[in-house]
Simulated assay, not measured.
Amino acid sequence: MKAAIISFTARGALKNRELAALLRKKLSCTGYSFYKYALEGQTAFREVRSLTETLFSSCGLLIFIGAAGIAVRAIAPFLKEKDRDPAVLVMDEHAVHVVSLLSGHLGGGNDWCRQVALLTGAEPVITTATDLNGVFAVDLFARDNGLFIEKRERIKEVSGRLLHGEKVGFYSELPWEGELPELLVPCEKGGDGLLRPRLVEEGEKGDSGLPECGIIIAAQPQAVRFPVTCRLIPKDLTVGIGCRKGRSGAELSEFLQTVFQKFDLDKRRIARFASISLKEKEAGILELAFAERAPFLTFTAQELEAVPGKFEASGFVRKTVGVDNVCERAAVLGSGGGRLLVPRQAAGGITIAAAQRMPVIRFYRNDKGN
């Protein structure tokens, strides 16, 4: 992930340089200072709006050193969605306070706010209600477990009920471990196919009523639902991909859509793309991965050759790239040894396969969700 620090004064430039040096131990970080005060190693700028427009789409973390109003006006024209906007922090030039301004949960703003506070000695300022009240945060839980939130507006439904002390149901098709946070009620399918609260121990008494609002973790749409459902989709698929040089992102996207429709798969389940290292700079694949907001991994021919299993072999492919199959082997290796769910599909000089690795859902935090 890339980070950028933006400052506007001479004192801010000094703090910018100090913080950038500390953050570079964790991630790629560039300091930007107003041209009158830029120090050696910093990039000078004259107009903050155009700079912010560039950084907003290329960085995962922006830190403004200066007045909060400047930061708000700078980022306002470029706000998109909670799961797409970068984390934005604001810190005063004396490092008295650092404020989590945007993308506190999904973008990691609150976590970065705490980290920057530790690095600089500033007081972290976090205004997210679930953090302040020690309540389970479904968006943070989804981010930590690699889950896609189907309807982001349901985050407010879940958080609002928990903040008011209401119980929220929890049903997962995937195995989970850890302590269920307070007010979350584990549910299961009954013999009639409907959801009902699950008693933790045999003979334990509990509320027999199904909560009105609940969380469901499932790869496919469920017939069983809560009256108000927040569905989380596991990112459990690795797409192995190969193509002739020069295939466009649009062509790859169209074929990917065709394959996923054929196998009744949801593209929101894609965790990553994988291929051979010869394709690491293939523009079409990079474009596709960017469009699907998924990382692109590559492996050497030797690494792919060592993957155990039965794969569709091609002498031509081996002669061309040094291994008998790229897409299937890359899918399995990229998934960490998952099950080949979609065998090699080929058309128009493009090959696609997909492997599934069943994740284990974890509750990392204590029973209050933090």
Rank of each mutant, 00 (worst) to 15 (best):
V116C: 04
A354Q: 05
L79E: 02
A137Q: 02
Q345P: 06
K245N: 10
D264L: 04
V228F: 02
I65T: 08
A21T: 05
G121Q: 10
E153Y: 14
D139E: 11
A10C: 02
G369R: 01
G107Y: 03
T238S: 14
I233N: 01
D92E: 02
A346P: 02
Y364M: 04
A353T: 10
V317W: 13
A291Y: 05
F141Y: 09
A10L: 09
V332W: 12
A21P: 03
L22Y: 04
C59W: 03
N325P: 15
L106N: 05
V96H: 07
L22E: 12
K281C: 00
S314T: 09
R46S: 14
N133F: 13
I216P: 00
A331M: 12
A353K: 05
D236T: 09
G349C: 08
K25H: 09
M1V: 04
N16W: 03
A289W: 05
G206Q: 12
A71T: 08
R344Y: 10
R17M: 12
P124I: 07
A71I: 02
T43W: 02
G214K: 00
C213G: 01
G104Q: 08
G66F: 10
K279W: 09
N325M: 14
A283K: 12
A218T: 07
T300K: 06
D144E: 12
R318C: 14
G193L: 13
S208R: 11
D139S: 04
A38L: 09
F263A: 13
Y35N: 01
F64R: 05
G249A: 11
A142T: 05
L51Y: 12
E81R: 08
F8E: 11
G315D: 15
P211R: 09
R196E: 07
G107P: 05
